[in-house]
Write a protein that binds this DNA or RNA. Structure first.
Length: 660
RNA sequence: GCCUGGGUAGCUCAGUCGGUAGAGCAGCGCAUUCGUAAUGCGCAGGUCAAGGGUUCGAAUCCCUUCCCAGGCUCCA
């Protein structure tokens, strides 16, 4: 009997009898590994533990606490979900059930137009736990296309997938469901349940169990809203109960910093239903934060060589005929108003108006780059189901600028734009950035290939110059030009797309924009769109979540609350607050009509950066007791002058917060 | 727009089988004068999202609309 040898991830090789499976290998290495093993990676290919190993293979055993291991757990749990649903709803059709970030889902079509309800989740979960307790093996089998079609003849979605594979028209995600282009693989469990799948799977259902079904949702088959809507069940699954608990805890934490909750709790803004969906009113405490953000933005733009413009919210439709919005963006616009002298629209974008400003007189190359900036409020008719707090809203203000430059200036202008954008984002406390570079969609674009190449290259060079990690998204650009999108990472690791720098070869043509060059000839400028916050509303929402409501002092609506210990100290408390206000701080006194502890508690819950407590000793020595947000120990007997100076320095500096 | 689930006091929520609405916090008043996260007592607060229907009677059952949540689709 001959042997085979395999190479392990640590570089060692092992010699084993022919016919050894990955499972045998794990046992040979150690009892612990044998117990943990879920699957194997053989020559870079994931496979079941029961697969016999080829001679000379490089083999790694996949265990649960790894990305690959969790993915297998999740995918296998999705199969159990499908099996449970078919037990409870005989005749249910199951479509696809992949592993996703933190979990899995599976899409179903229930017999007789039935729908899942939230209450069904507990029932399904119970059925899943029963299947897991039954310790059912996942048994792989391979079939020809024809046999596969026969095997799944009662499952129309599976049939469609197999047909797609057979005819070479399969979507990429479908290839995960089958073994190869000429063969389909299936996994059977006990009780007659079979699912189409490439695998690998855990050896038996007993290896699963640390999961929770999260919610039901509708999802279109193939993600196409013209196709049937299926019932999707989302779940999360982990390698251990502790990991599952940690994930659920993380979700609870994220919910605590939900900007919609914080906006209500901190009395910042609201969405009165009288206004209609996606329209917000800003309360005084939200309004002052917004003012600070806008003031800072304006100051930086002034510094950065921008010129300030203002344009109306409403315009005659002719403008959007010229810009082309009416032909390609009509669905996103509020319906027209028919007036005596024409048809008017709310503006969904500022760019056409800025082009009119450019066009208002002849331009010389000496004026370029011309950087127009506006806090421009726009209205977009977002579909009702897409609205989401401040993140997706129907009326919002963009910090929008349009830069007109020559081809020769493009490179430098993009580089300086990127630097400007990052510098402002850093001032708001973001430190981690990534970018996407979207390139030409060869099927749909305007402008010459040369200008696309040149500007795409300019964008790429700017990203490289700043060492910003980026991914190229091929074909993802809008038809009018390539773009950079900048994502920031927030305090709990989520990423948000905020800023964008887009080249536009379309507007200059449509508006027939020109400048006179040094050669006394007319030339067409290039237009750049640049949004930094994107929308003030959305950026505000991201900031709130990033800081969990603990805004840096310069942005906090109330920066200092002054509390006298007894009402005898109220007069001094007012004096302290006045002294701080003179230096530009927002300081408020809450008089001593309630116990000190209650007033401190309220100020803490309002997330005010500094609570000052003043008593007899402070009145006598002109000091304050400083209770800073996030610190455990109050700082007693700080000289008022010292506190006032350091506070105003902190506010002036903007930038990252002092938070501990 | 589509699917599922919701909407009860400013906020968070309870409300049984269809029988005329309840708590805590917040607010207001009075008392309390207190050194770092809740002083006590009292008062007020509601067209139960809106409209229609069934019923002797509707927060509760049915229909329509609006709004919200989570997804799907969409985000030029």
């Amino acid at each position: 009997m001959s042997d085979l040898s395999v190479r392990l991830p640590d570089g060692t090789t092992r010699t084993l009898p022919l016919g050894t499976t990955a499972s045998d290998l794990a046992s040979a290495i150690g009892r612990r590994l044998a117990k943990d093993a879920l699957a194997a990676e053989v020559n870079g290919q994931l496979t079941d533990l029961s697969t016999p190993l080829p001679d000379g293979a490089t083999v790694a055993i996949i265990t649960p606490a790894s990305d690959a291991g969790r993915e297998i757990l999740r995918h296998s749990t999705a199969h159990v979900l499908a099996q449970a649903v078919t037990r409870l709803w005989p005749g249910a059709h199951y479509a696809i059930g992949p592993a996703i970030e933190n979990g899995f889902y599976y899409d179903f079509e229930l017999p007789g137009d039935a729908h899942f309800t939230d209450d069904d989740l507990a029932v399904i979960e119970g059925a899943m736990r029963a299947i897991i307790a039954e310790d059912q093996p996942f048994t792989r089998s391979e079939h020809s296309i024809d046999d596969g079609l026969e095997l799944f003849k009662d499952q129309p979605f599976k049939v469609e997938i197999i047909r797609g594979v057979a005819t070479g028209t399969a979507a990429e995600e479908d290839l995960d469901e089958v073994a190869s282009l000429s063969m389909v693989s299936a996994y059977a469990n006990s009780g007659g349940f079979v699912d189409l799948c490439r695998g690998p799977h855990v050896p038996s259902t007993q290896r699963l169990g640390h999961f929770k079904l999260m919610r039901v949702a509708g999802a279109y088959w193939r993600g196409d809203e013209n196709r049937p809507q299926l019932q999707r069940i989302y779940g999360t699954a982990w390698e251990s109960e502790a990991a599952l608990e940690a994930h659920l805890h993380q979700l609870a934490e994220a919910e605590k910093r939900d900007h919609r909750r914080l906006a209500t709790e901190l009395d910042l803004l609201s969405f009165p239903s009288e206004l209609g969906g996606g329209l917000a009113v800003w309360h005084p405490r939200g309004g002052i934060i917004r003012k600070e953000m806008e003031d800072y933005s304006r100051a930086r733009h002034l510094d950065g060589g921008y010129e300030f413009v203002v344009t109306p919210h409403l315009t005659n439709k002719r403008l959007y005929e010229t810009s082309g919005h009416l032909s390609f963006y009509k669905d996103g616009m509020y319906p027209p108003m028919e007036l005596d002298n024409g048809t008017y629209y709310m503006k969904p974008m500022n760019c056409p108006m800025h082009c009119l400003i450019y066009k208002s007189r002849a331009r010389s190359y000496r004026e370029l780059p011309l950087r127009l900036f506006e806090l421009g409020t726009v209205y977009r008719y977002e579909r009702a189901g897409t609205l989401h707090g401040l993140m997706r809203i129907r009326g919002f203000t963009q910090d929008d600028s349009h830069i007109y430059c020559t081809e020769d200036q493009l490179q430098d202008e993009i580089a300086s734009l990127l630097e400007f954008v990052m510098s402002v984002l850093r001032a708001f406390g973001f430190t981690e950035f990534t970018a996407n570079l979207s390139t030409k969609d060869p099927k749909k674009y305007v402008g010459s290939d040369e200008i696309w190449d040149k500007s795409t290259e300019a964008l790429r060079l700017a990203l490289e110059k700043f060492g910003l990690p980026f991914q190229v998204k091929k074909g993802d650009a809008a038809f009018y030009g390539p773009k950079i999108d900048i994502d920031v990472r927030d305090a709990i690791g989520r990423t948000w797309q905020l800023s964008t720098i887009q080249c536009d070869f379309n507007h200059p043509d449509r508006f027939d924009l020109e400048y006179v060059g040094a050669d006394n000839q007319r030339h067409r400028p290039i237009m750049l769109h640049r949004a930094l916050f994107g929308s003030i509303e959305r950026f505000f929402g991201v900031l709130l979540e990033h800081y969990a409501g603990n805004l840096p002092t310069w942005l906090a609506p109330e920066q200092v609350r002054v509390l006298g210990v007894r009402d005898a100290h109220d007069e001094y408390a007012h004096e302290v607050a006045r002294a701080l206000r003179v230096r530009g701080a927002r300081a408020v006194v809450e008089e001593a009509t309630e116990p000190l502890g209650a007033r401190i508690r309220r100020a803490k819950m309002e997330k005010i950066p500094y609570i000052l407590v003043v008593g007899d000793e402070d009145v006598a020595a002109r000091t304050v007791g400083v209770n800073a947000r996030g610190s455990n120990e109050p700082d007693r007997a700080v000289a008022l002058e010292d506190f006032a100076r350091s506070l105003s320095e902190q506010i002036q500096a903007h930038g990252a917060p002092e938070d501990r």
